[in-house]
Write a protein that binds this DNA or RNA. Sequence first.
DNA 1: TATTGTTATACTCTATAACTATA
DNA 2: TATAGTTATAGAGTATAACAATA
Lengths: 140, 140
Amino acid sequence: MTSVSGSLAFQLGKLGQAATAGFADRLAPLGLRPRHCGVLELLAGGGRGQLDLARTLDVTPSVVVDMLDELEALHAVRRTRDTGDRRRQIVELTPEGRELRLEAARLAHEVDAELLGHLGAEQLATLRLLLGQAYAPWRR
Amino acid sequence: MTSVSGSLAFQLGKLGQAATAGFADRLAPLGLRPRHCGVLELLAGGGRGQLDLARTLDVTPSVVVDMLDELEALHAVRRTRDTGDRRRQIVELTPEGRELRLEAARLAHEVDAELLGHLGAEQLATLRLLLGQAYAPWRR
DNA sequence: TATTGTTATACTCTATAACTATA
DNA sequence: TATAGTTATAGAGTATAACAATA
């Protein structure tokens, strides 16, 4: 194959973009964007400080501030000052936040169905396996 | 699966982003970005007008102007006024442009190797097949 | 002095709209 | 009037750097 568009990297890029766009469209009515979902998932595992979130998500701290401002406006998270170290804010999911996270997961699987629904169960299983293997080195 | 990160849409989004980023890193020394590659590939099929390019690539005309300015600075394309309709510019690949396109294709396949090289030939063939099927509805 | 979180600012990428020159 | 291309401008989204509070 001597063309860029014939490469898997290019095709994965395109498909990934389509997947993200489809997901973003469905999230929009909830007031969420895809990037918020990483925060919701992390916080489902328990409260965290903001810098901890920034490092784990590999985004700059100011982006975390921005995302949390938005999630707080949706009453999805709560910031509470750490009494032990008053510089830290402990960020936690509210019941509404847990609900939003589940709804987002439902929408993500709707996109799966739209994007890949025509594939057979066997093919889907193969894709999931291959993606898991390919994705692993980038997961950090 | 009740998590966003468990969806194929989310994983495809992440992997696609990684693929595009890896490709962009390799293109950078050439003065190219991934978006330029679509132009180079289209023009490899023959000269076109700019609005035609914009419609086919599904980007706004001003973006085409910008990309062509950059490609022209690299001596990869040439704009020639259409003598029949003096409003139109016919955009064509130069020999340098053809060379750049081949080099970009080589780099794209380097990313394939880095991203997916640990997969077996059989698995790669399966992924290519599945991607082709999944990608088709979005190809327009 | 170092760290947590915040704000102000700049940069990249893309889209919209106004403009020119031709038709 | 409509079309091809251009320019100017504005909007997302993200990153950098300076800052206030606390350690």
